Simulated assay, not measured.
Amino acid sequence: MRRYAILFGGLLLLWGASALYLEKKSERAEREYLAKAELTGRYEALRSLWSPKARREARAQVEKMLGIYGITPKTQKRGNLKSYLFTVDAKRVDTILGKILGSNLTITSFTARKSGDDTLEVRLEIEL
């Protein structure tokens, strides 16, 4: 009888240690899964932000914004790049350049230089 009690106690101890080990392992796997799910979510958000479709939409928004302010840029395409050349009056420089630089455009080149007392000439090159 005592032998059975010892065997039963050993079996309970082994079962308890196994349960604890499996619990720790499953907690670690769950943490890793949640971390990977979070990274996947971030990746998807960035992918949707910088996808070709998002870049086209950002380019269309900037072109529309320039039209709203009465600016007709001279455009030129070279390969997968599109260049814009336009002048902005001093009253609207901060607003327009702030909106362009704050957009999701993939800007490859940006130059702005003073072209008169109250105008700024802007050259902007973006990826298509």
Rank of each mutant, 00 (worst) to 15 (best):
R2E: 14
R3D: 05
A5F: 02
A5M: 06
I6G: 03
G9S: 15
G10C: 12
L12Y: 03
L13Q: 09
W15G: 12
G16M: 12
S18N: 09
A19N: 05
L22D: 10
S26L: 10
S26W: 12
A29R: 07
E30W: 10
Y33M: 14
A35N: 01
E38G: 01
T40Q: 11
G41F: 05
G41D: 01
R42F: 07
Y43I: 05
Y43W: 04
E44R: 14
A45H: 02
A45F: 04
R47M: 13
R47Y: 09
K53T: 11
K53G: 01
R55F: 02
Q61K: 08
K64V: 06
G67F: 00
I68S: 06
I71Y: 06
I71G: 10
K74V: 14
T75F: 07
K77C: 02
R78V: 09
R78N: 08
G79W: 11
G79P: 07
S83E: 13
Y84V: 08
D89Y: 03
D89C: 09
K91P: 02
K91Y: 13
V93A: 09
D94M: 02
T95I: 13
I96W: 06
I96V: 12
I96Y: 06
G102H: 04
G102F: 08
S103F: 03
I107G: 02
T108F: 12
R113L: 12
K114C: 00
G116H: 06
E121V: 10
E125V: 12
L128Q: 09
L128E: 11
